[in-house]
Design a protein around this nucleic acid. Structure first.
Lengths: 231, 231
DNA sequence: CGTACCCTTGAGGGTAGTCAAGTGGAGTGG
DNA sequence: CCACTCCACTTGACTACCCTCAAGGGTACG
């Protein structure tokens, strides 16, 4: 399948790559449409491909043996994901589900070494990405250890604002369907607590809720909450 | 400073490396003794070196702006640590403190590229290491989200058993000084709760405590607790 | 022997989890 | 177009786990 290089040219990941190299890379790629609610891959499944999200939004989840679920991260357009093999894992550690209609490129894991070799920048970028991911995880651990729920929720919503926010007349819209349950799984709490917190915020004019919708009316106030402002 | 290659030869990291290459690598290294309680590097400090722990035990900690502290991980002999630059960070994200008298090799960060280039195995191993680290972090997040404190403490102690355990007539000794506070900072709880839990375990014959000491008398029982056995 | 520092234990209270019941919006099918 | 159903969400009551604070004991070390 031929993929037009202009589609990916705008991504930071590829912006320094020569057209010829890029074409060669893309010649091995296949494009895939993922309808909302469908999984790109499932936890424990053998890792046969790695991916690049072009459009849409994914939730990466993990479930424990006893059925509890958490959201590991949200994949945004331009992010690499599912590169388990790069970390020498043979299976995917989590499940990637489309939170919105999405489009991703995929490559067979076998070509990962070529992928990296042909473009050393990629190796560096990948390292950085994983490093960032590790830092984020540590931040999350720190927050879960030391901060109370409301502040953690504020932080998550604030980050979603920056990574998936869309300007609207009344504030910033989180640009994909996200439930209270999702937010709970991102912050280590329950959907009830999240609901109560959002209700309280709505009463204060900070946000505006809805079924799987969220509009932040006062980003400034939210950020202050996330930073630990007393009230 | 000349470092004898036999010192590091036994480490998995180097076991496939030719003597000549190893010598070249070691020619750039300096050895450093860290007395108990002293820091190898501090959080926020510019990353000028990366390290390999030869002997002893380190605690890597992070502090939040408001002074709360957590233990990110324990460094065991044979582990690489402080390779911030590999992740394109200019400063160390945490503080590394010697929990016991320790010895580490250090290299200037500038030679990291050479380090990796001369031995591709190292690049792979490092990737793996970081990947593992990321997985551990996610495990920890999952546990903090879904499990209660006692089980988290059981899990941490169980892992310390495996990574820093020393057989003794009555059980397995955690082979370095570790306080209740330390365990609290590893599990996201308080020293009071840890103390209570350990006391309860001691009453059940699971462990034997002491001032900064811990002996696991019933590893089997502990592992069951960590796995979620009801009682 | 004195003095830190680590640990233990108790009492009390608050944050957030659990459970239950009910509301309302979105989508579906008649 | 309307009724029906499903499911996300809300809200209340209750509970409990664990944090906070306070006081005291034990152990290592100078």
């Amino acid at each position: 399948m031929k993929i037009d290089r202009t589609v990916v040219r705008s991504l930071a990941l590829f912006d320094k790559m020569a057209d010829a190299d890029l074409d060669r890379l893309l010649s091995h790629a296949t494009s895939r449409r993922i309808p909302q609610g469908e999984a790109v891959f499932e936890q424990g499944q053998e890792a046969t491909s790695f991916f690049l999200l072009l459009h849409g939004r994914l939730k990466v989840t993990q479930v424990t043996e006893d059925g509890q679920q958490i959201i590991v991260r949200i994949v945004h357009p331009g992010d690499l994901f599912g590169f388990a093999k790069a970390l020498r894992r043979s299976d995917y550690p989590g499940t990637a589900i489309a939170a919105a209609e999405s489009v991703a490129l995929s490559w067979p894991t076998e070509i990962w070494p070529d992928f990296v070799e042909q473009n050393p920048r990629l190796a560096v970028t990948t390292m950085q990405t994983i490093g960032q991911r590790l830092e984020e995880a540590h931040t999350r651990i720190r927050e879960m250890s030391t901060q109370e729920v409301e502040r953690r929720v504020a932080h998550v919503v604030w980050r979603l604002c920056q990574q998936a926010g869309k300007r609207e007349p009344n504030g910033i819209r989180i640009d994909f369907q996200i439930s209270r349950q999702d937010i709970a799984e991102m912050t280590g709490t329950t959907l009830f607590t999240v609901s109560r917190i959002l209700s309280a915020w709505e009463a204060r004019g900070l946000v505006e809720g809805g079924r799987q919708k969220l509009l932040v009316r006062d980003p400034e106030g939210l950020s202050q909450l996330a930073e630990g402002a007393k009230e």
